[in-house]
Design a binder for these strands. Structure first.
Lengths: 248, 248
DNA sequence: TATTTCAATAATGTATACATAATGAATACA
DNA sequence: TGTATTCATTATGTATACATTATTGAAATA
């Protein structure tokens, strides 16, 4: 049972193992849209019995990666280009609500300090670093921290839960197109705009400008839409988009 | 296996049976927030083996009615009053997006005819009927038809899916407080306002006024918030709210 | 050659057995 | 009397066996 452990080193359940590995198989493109998922094939492949595989399949269906076949079993789901645009828009809408709530609900004095730290760290990263892949993976981490902290500022479990659901589709998430964008010439410009939007949202929250905070996050998601449009024009960079194989 | 059939008379799976009955147990208040759900107790109660019960529990967890206990198993989830307000707000936001998409995406000529039929039928119902319970259950049906048709007009599976997820919590759904409202004096007024909003949304969609359609649906959800506030002031009508026992 | 039928095969849905981890009660001890 | 510890009980996670339903392929017929 050596490799059957989670990141913290604790032994992970077979169900979690099946869930993670199945998700990778789907997102990595080994299981293609429309493919029926044979439980026994997965059992052989993952070395886990049918029960946890089944549980993982139910979870993945709820997450939106697969769908029930009327005659039984599951098949990998595919997404139209418009589906992806809609999902990104949806995320902007929900993150906009989170930002508005953060602005409307009175915060204690120091509540914005941590997210401002992330802003500063991102500034430093952009100022210092070059164009290499290390830079972009650093950005991905900071960007993720920013978004998750913003969600938390809404202080609304219901909203956070909903955002997480939409963001489960990786191409709809806040980091969905960062790596693809990294290979584009306009990358630095878009990054600068994104960072400015981040800062403006925090300012708006601090100033209790709910409507502005909401509008900013909705527009912020449009950056992802633009990246998506670019990638769709020339699909060569699509393999940098996690789950890109699900987009038809 | 006589009673193990769905509404259409076909034999339903044990999993579906477990899902439906468990949902009823939770929404009906027989399983209270914080209660741990013992699989074996459910097995005895529903006459179904552990496997389908387990599948149903995973589904219910994804729907948001129950949550995983760190030490294993599931417990019934509770919702704060603010959670419920947030969920209603969220629904308004998402239905607003659906309305906006409907307005923005060019519709064929007759696409709005069916939803206008529902408007007309609701007009007729309001004009003719009294205050009895039959009237309100008729209204619930027509109201449900209206909302579902509106979702469909967005022509966006991703958005519809998300709306359905939020509306899975019955007190966040479009019919969540209609029955509770029926016992209030101001019921007719609120109904008239709601119907006017419905009509205005359809008009806005026809006129391609996306922003207006969105704003109207967001405000429309506020009617539910107001009903919720009324019910919370005097909890005697809370038993008319499905799942009201989950609100602490 | 295309189509339909039928049988063999495989897949899913369900039940259940087993192992391990968690809970609670009773007892020993301070 | 209160607290800690041990042990019995129970619950969950997992594997697997079984029955029923779907699917595939071959053979027969038009």
């Amino acid at each position: 049972m050596a490799e059957n452990t989670d990141r913290a080193g604790r032994s992970a359940s077979q169900t979690v193992k099946a869930l993670l590995e199945l998700r990778e198989l789907i997102l990595g493109g080994e299981l293609r849209p429309g493919d029926r998922i044979s439980e026994l094939a997965i059992v052989e492949r993952l070395g886990v019995s049918r029960t946890p595989v089944r549980t993982a399949l139910v979870r993945l269906a709820e997450e939106g990666f697969i769908e029930e076949i009327p005659s039984g079993g599951f098949a990998v789901k595919g997404f139209s280009e418009r589906d992806v645009f809609d999902a990104i828009d949806l995320r902007g809408l929900l993150e906009g609500m989170a930002a508005r709530l953060a602005a409307e609900r009175s915060l204690s004095a120091g509540d914005l300090a941590p997210i401002r730290d992330v802003l500063a760290a991102t500034d430093a990263l952009i100022a210092e670093a070059g164009d290499n892949e290390e830079f972009f993976s650093g950005y991905v981490a900071l960007n993720g921290r920013f978004h998750e902290m913003l969600w938390a500022l809404s202080d609304s479990p219901v909203v956070v839960r909903q955002i997480e659901r939409v963001s489960a589709l990786p191409f709809a998430s806040h980091n969905g197109f960062v790596m693809a964008q990294s290979a584009a010439g306009e990358a630095r410009t878009i990054l600068a705009v994104a960072q400015d939007q981040h800062r403006c949202v925090v300012d708006a929250i601090e100033a209790r400008e709910g409507a502005r905070a909401e509008a900013l996050m909705r527009e912020h998601a449009r950056l992802a839409s633009r990246n998506l449009r670019t990638v769709l024009r020339n699909r060569t960079r699509m393999d940098l988009v996690k789950g890109g194989s699900l987009i038809r």
